[in-house]
Computed example of a mutant assay.
Amino acid sequence: MAQVILTFFVAYGIVVGGALCGGIGAFLTHKPPLLSMELLADQLKIFGIVGALGGSFDSFLQIEKILIGNFSPVVKQLAMIVVAFLGAHIGTICVQWLVQVRS
């Protein structure tokens, strides 16, 4: 359970932290920071997932064990992928809520 919580918040932190730091960079370069934060949060979602999983290839190598008949690692790894996706997606939603850019 501790690993699930850690994975969620690492993905969340990569998206939110990257968007906030990118917003500061946009402000310093005289670009609209709120719009930049929203775009960055959307672009950082995949990096949040991969970063939280600790590398993409290790996660998918576990799926190979299904051929051997060992389902437990496969189920655990699929759960971790889903949790990492949720963390990154909720991070993106929080940044969008924070900036509330109107199109």
Rank of each mutant, 00 (worst) to 15 (best):
I49G: 07
G69A: 04
Q3Y: 09
H30Y: 10
G25W: 00
K76Q: 15
F71Q: 12
G22A: 02
R102S: 14
K31Q: 15
V10F: 07
H89D: 12
F57E: 13
H89P: 01
A26L: 01
S103N: 13
G23P: 02
G22K: 00
N70R: 11
A26V: 00
L35M: 10
I49Q: 07
F8P: 05
I49M: 14
L35W: 03
V83I: 15
Q96G: 14
A26R: 02
Q100F: 10
Y12R: 04
F57M: 15
G91S: 11
L39A: 12
G23I: 00
A41M: 05
T29Y: 05
I90D: 04
R102M: 10
A84Y: 06
I90T: 14
I66G: 04
E64R: 10
I81Y: 06
V10Y: 07
L61E: 12
A2N: 11
V101P: 02
I68P: 02
I46H: 13
L6V: 12
V15G: 06
K65C: 04
I63V: 14
V16F: 07
F9P: 07
K45I: 08
F71C: 09
L44W: 03
I81G: 08
I66E: 07
W97A: 15
F60S: 09
S36T: 10
T92V: 10
E64C: 08
F27I: 00
E64I: 11
L35C: 05
I46D: 10
A26F: 00
L6Y: 12
E38S: 15
L28E: 01
P33D: 02
G91K: 07
G69S: 05
L44Y: 06
I93W: 10
A26G: 05
E64L: 14
F47H: 10
Q96M: 09
G69Q: 02
V15A: 05
L34I: 01
T92Q: 15
Q3W: 04
M37F: 00
V82H: 06
V4C: 09
L67D: 13
F57W: 13
I24A: 06
V15E: 03
F60L: 15
K45Q: 12
G54M: 06
I90W: 09
